[in-house]
């Protein structure tokens, strides 16, 4: 029973991955919108884009990690 509960918890934690996907899409979409308005400044900001994506994604990875821990380690 406890194992099944852990699986449910893992599934719930995996929702975080979807939330991170929204975050990453938000970052990339806003970057694209800005880049289309001012294409000359876009090239200099790709590093910032990747940093932003990395931060947004890290939190999704945390939830993925929680899911894995619930699946395998609890």
């Amino acid at each position: 029973m406890e194992g099944q509960l852990a699986h449910i918890g893992a599934g719930l934690a995996a929702i975080g991955s979807g939330a991170a996907a929204i975050g990453v899409g938000n970052v990339a979409g806003n970057f694209l919108a800005g880049a289309l308005r001012n294409p000359s400044a876009a090239a200099s900001q790709t590093a910032t884009l990747f940093i932003g994506i990395a931060f947004a994604e890290a939190l999704g990875i945390f939830s993925f990690l929680v899911a894995l821990l619930l699946m395998f380690a609890v």
């Binding site: 890290a58 990875i61 993925f64 990690l65 894995l68």
Partner: peptide, 12 residues
Amino acid sequence: SHSIRLAGNVMA
């Protein structure tokens, strides 16, 4: 976050 990002992405 620095470490888990890398390992997590690759592992996932």
